[in-house]
Design a protein around this nucleic acid. Structure first.
Lengths: 190, 190
DNA sequence: TGCACTTTTTGACATTTATCAATTGCAGGT
DNA sequence: ACCTGCAATTGATAAATGTCAAAAAGTGCA
């Protein structure tokens, strides 16, 4: 089954009936897009949640002329603009691909209908949101109680794959530091 | 009705049937506790979500001998340890009252049963988690793209009430800065 | 009212990190 | 293999913030 990675991820969170899985399969759009493709632009209202079957993506926003990376995600994970998707308001973030990628996605309208039709999936919806909340919570704590070096080390340890594949500058702003600073931390480790 | 503030808050997020509201009313525990009372201690597994009818509370964790405030909440808002409640694992945080307070609360087990019995409430559960996610998201952005002064100004503007009532030292660590730094920012504003 | 304790303010100084700029390194396309 | 351009590294310097300590202000209680 083509969407197996997604369902594996979903059912690990909460069980989904076969009927619900079939419905989802019909909804889902699969796309293969090249590095650099923009999934969501500033000003758009986010109406899709993406699941990366393959590839790498990041979300970022601008501060003056600088790009601050808000999130980086690799295969078997979800990507969406929290603010824009939940509020259905124009996004402050851009989402773009850092590698050629294979994506599954569904619109918010489709998912709302899905949840309405399969109430048992609501437990899953909550669970998924809760997982996101946990990540945000964890990151908030790290940002305030760890030094730059500690944040670097933890990231390298927790996400070795992304650490290797994503450009240094994006990781730096993701971790809340200057890219020169991150480069120096790396140099110190040799 | 004594719990009206809570229901006002809940139904603003998503509608709740009368039966569901009645069930909730039966579940809820109301407590009046003095300033300094500890709602959750480090090592405990959080099993209660609190709603402040009146008062002020904060969650904090320790870094060495320092206390870092993770969250501050006033009346008509919820307080719980995200990590401990969702994972049902021992808390890293302490939750304490900064003022004499009136609280409503329910255990996780009670709420799980409530959601099982009233599936319509699941939409509300998701919506509430999503609101928390939004706040975390917003705060994460502020922490990385705003200067200390900007964070101070925004907090004072967005939460004037908490800004006045909570001790400076707690606000400082909440905003990710030293209390001396916050004091100087304040002094500059006169 | 006054004492004891805590919190806030303020100053001097140290440290960390950002900024800016130059150089080196690397990857893609032809 | 060789340009071309973007990314990473490195150095010099500046700016912001933390640290430590002392003084001042505030708070609660006897």
């Amino acid at each position: 089954m083509p969407t197996s990675a997604l369902f594996k991820r979903l059912t690990a969170v909460a069980p989904l009936s076969v009927a619900a899985q079939q419905h989802l399969t019909q909804i889902l759009l699969r796309q293969t897009l090249p590095k650099g493709a923009v999934l969501l632009a500033v000003g758009d209202v986010s109406n899709r949640v993406f699941f990366l079957e393959q590839g790498l993506a990041r979300a970022f926003y601008k501060k003056g002329r600088k790009e601050l990376t808000a999130w980086i995600v690799a295969e078997d994970d979800f990507m969406y603009s929290v603010y824009s998707y939940i509020n259905q308001r124009p996004s402050h973030e851009t989402i773009e691909l850092l590698e050629d990628s294979v994506l599954l996605s569904a619109t918010r309208a489709e998912l709302d209908e899905f949840y309405a039709q399969f109430p048992e999936a609501n437990g899953f919806r909550s669970a998924l949101t809760e997982q996101y909340l946990l990540r945000h919570d964890e990151r908030l704590r790290a940002l305030r109680m760890l030094t730059t070096t500690e944040r670097h080390d933890r990231f390298a340890q927790d996400f070795p794959d992304i650490y290797r594949r994503a450009p240094l500058q994006h990781i730096a702003t993701y971790l809340g530091m200057n890219n020169a600073t991150l480069s120096r931390i790396r140099a110190r480790k040799t």
